[in-house]
Design a protein around this nucleic acid. Structure first.
Length: 662
DNA sequence: AAGACGGAGGTTTTT
DNA sequence: CCTCCGTCTT
């Protein structure tokens, strides 16, 4: 109990010990937000609230894990319902989706973006002649906006260019929903949407959840979209113990539907809400904070907030102009080496950039200098082709209606060589006629009996059918055994070679090996769990956070990924017009309001980057940036002018020397 | 059914 | 400039 309330400032204490009724904590960067949330959960438990009555939702698995671990450390136990929005919703749906009329059952599969696009491509194809420009990604954005905003497709398609295509788009979207249902699958947005519908449409359901969860905590509230907002509103009971935490100045995901107005209007949604502002920063030097404050003040429509610190004064911010991006990278390399010589670790340095494309020059420079680095972002483990192929096997086993996974198997496994689109279509039609899931049908005795003759194609289909039968007959538990067994009988490792040749063979083998280990770890942690649970873990929970704080290396990542982290030394590369702010956020005459919103989001991104730094910030920009195959002139970002000149030392980098500029 | 060619586009991506 | 699609060819 003592430790729960130890070392807290007055506003922090106020937030931690707020018992009943709604509360919003506006927590500035580095103000100890996580500490407050975890202490509050611990405090509630210490006050006699049952852990099972607490539901805490975050955006990332990392945040959820951290929260759980810290609560456990404080009170020896933690609520089971600490998780991501999507993870919590998936759990609710596994339990209750059968009660909702939505065409799925509790064995549903979760489709990621790639699978969603695959399905959409099929819908586009089925729709026949489609005007050019109606791409899967445009459609997925429209469908996602429509679900996230709970509005019609017409309303979701802000882009007038495509409004005349509305009937076609609606038709495709309808087809997409139909196919999802046929596959017994949901997309990421559906996890939230169907949960909200569950609460709205199934009589008595809302009451059950209201009784179950008496305390609701939401992290990063500024990043919630309308659907998440509705979820929170439907989950809140008459006690209104809704506690949200966030920082509107760190809202950087509006392009994904996040609406920071949710946090701005919380006190209107809950007029008796308690408002706590955490403005004392424990992370950065006053120099860094002053710079950050000055920048963010240029945004309109803010909740006024001024971060302050009692930390000692620090170094001035370094601004550097280099000739090209190669020189910029070279300078960053030199700076990190110097810091290392002065007794810091490589991992004390982080380099942020606006776009992933910028990472390449930086990587090359670090490789050339022989300095270790960790690159974050890029392809995630479970998005690798060989892993997705293997996962497809597991998925058709768990959910034989999963047509997308089946098509993946069909297209990628050597056993299906010589069988193409036509054979697949025939199989699918026959399965539909037999009213059976395609995989069940293809693996059935009846199907094999119907295969007459000895033609090459028939032999291939027979072989495939037996192979599928074997897959379905493999015992599904324990998970690790099932996964190993499937790897063995499909000879997956060895087939890798035949499939894609020698390219990166070693890496691909390691990935599969690592996947088998993950399955083993999962089984050790959850001995009772079945394959379906493992697949859900893979789809939602098992993010490999590639940022390993143990490993020593300079950390490279986008500004977006840097949110929530901190480093002693922060470099931001490419602080230029067109890069930061990004060209897409500035250009375009007309539509002024939207442009302003986008520009302000870019500014928040810059703000997030600066406030990651504990001791020093280095901002660099170049005269010529290599882009689209040529050097293009680049000018300093307008954001640089927003930092008071007294806080900055400016240098020109030439021939390996820093030349002071006035 | 698999390889070759041409054109368009080229941010950020918690789940 | 390079990569990703979609289409066309064998």
């Amino acid at each position: 109990m003592d430790s729960i309330l130890e070392n807290l400032t007055v506003p922090q204490l106020e937030a931690v010990t707020h018992r009943d009724g709604p509360m919003i904590v506006i927590a500035g960067a580095g103000s100890g937000k996580t500490r407050v949330v975890t202490r509050r959960i611990a405090w509630l438990i210490s006050q006699g609230v049952w852990p099972s009555q607490i539901l805490a939702m975050t955006f990332t698995n990392k945040a959820a894990r951290e929260m759980r671990e810290r609560v456990e450390a404080l009170v020896g136990q933690a609520p089971r319902s600490i998780g991501t929005f999507h993870g919590c919703c998936a759990r609710f749906l596994r339990r209750d989706i059968d009660k909702l009329d939505c065409g799925r059952n509790h064995d549903f599969t979760i489709y990621d973006d790639e699978e969603q696009k695959t399905l959409l491509k099929q819908c586009i194809k089925a729709a026949g002649k489609i005007p050019r420009g109606l791409t899967p990604s445009l459609l997925s954005t429209a469908i996602s906006n429509s679900k996230n905003g709970r509005k019609s497709l017409a309303a979701a398609l802000q882009d007038d260019d495509y409004l005349d295509l509305l009937p076609v788009i609606e038709k495709i979207a309808e087809d997409y929903e139909k196919r999802l249902q046929e596959c017994n699958a949901v997309d990421f947005d559906d996890l939230l949407l169907l949960t909200v519908r569950l609460l709205e449409e199934v009589p008595g359901m809302a009451d059950i959840y209201h009784n179950r969860f008496r305390y609701l905590l939401v992290d990063e509230y500024q990043d919630t979209n309308h659907l998440q907002y509705q979820l929170i509103m439907r989950l809140a009971n008459e006690e209104q113990n809704v506690h949200v935490t966030g920082d509107p100045d760190q809202s950087i995901y509006s392009w994904r539907g996040a609406d920071y107005h949710n946090i701005m209007s919380f006190t209107q949604d809950f007029p008796n809400a308690k408002l706590v502002k955490l403005e004392q920063n424990y992370r950065s030097t006053p120099t860094i904070l002053n710079a950050a404050n000055s920048v963010i003040e240029n945004n309109s429509r803010r909740i006024p907030k001024e971060l302050f610190t009692e930390n000692a004064d620090g170094r001035l911010i370094t601004e550097l102009l280099a000739h090209t991006d190669r020189h910029e990278a070279e300078w960053i390399v030199r700076k990190t080496r110097r810091l290392r010589q002065n007794g810091h670790s490589w991992r004390d340095c982080a380099v942020f950039y606006r776009t992933n494309a910028q990472s390449r020059v930086l990587e090359e420079a670090f490789v050339k200098a022989g300095i270790p680095y960790q690159l974050l972002g890029g392809l995630r483990f479970y998005e690798r082709k060989e892993i997705k192929d293997f996962l497809a096997l597991l998925r058709i086993k768990v959910n034989p209606s999963d047509a997308v996974a089946f098509e993946r198997v069909f297209a990628n496994f050597p056993i299906c060589e010589g069988l193409g689109g036509k054979a697949l279509a025939e199989l699918q039609n026959a399965a539909a006629l037999a009213h059976q899931p395609v995989v069940t049908y293809a693996a059935s005795e009846a199907y094999r009996a119907g295969l007459k003759g000895r033609s090459q194609k028939t032999e291939r289909l027979r072989r495939l059918s037996n192979w599928l039968r074997q897959l379905l007959e493999t015992p599904a538990t324990p998970v690790a055994t099932a996964v190993q067994e499937i790897e063995r009988f499909t000879d997956f490792m060895r087939q890798l070679e035949l499939q894609h040749g020698q390219d990166n063979l070693l890496e691909r083998r390691e990935n599969v090996q690592s996947f088998l280990e993950r399955a083993q770890n999962f089984t050790n942690d959850n001995p009772e769990a079945d394959l379906a649970a493992f697949l859900e873990d893979v789809a939602l929970v098992a993010d490999v956070d590639s940022h390993d704080p143990q490993a020593d290396g300079v950390v490279l990542m986008t500004l977006h990924s840097s949110k929530g982290l901190e480093f002693p030394y922060v470099f931001i590369a490419g602080v230029e017009e067109g890069v930061l702010p990004h060209a897409r956020a500035t250009a375009r005459p007309g539509a002024l309001d939207e442009d302003l919103d986008q520009l302000e989001e870019e500014r928040r991104l810059f703000y997030v980057g600066i406030t990651r730094a504990r001791r020093a910030v280095y901002l660099s920009h170049v005269a010529l940036r290599f882009q689209y195959g040529g050097y293009k002139p680049s000018s300093p970002s307008r954001f640089l002018e927003e930092i008071p000149p007294g806080l900055v030392r400016r240098f020109l980098y030439r021939n390996g020397d820093e030349i002071p500029m006035r």
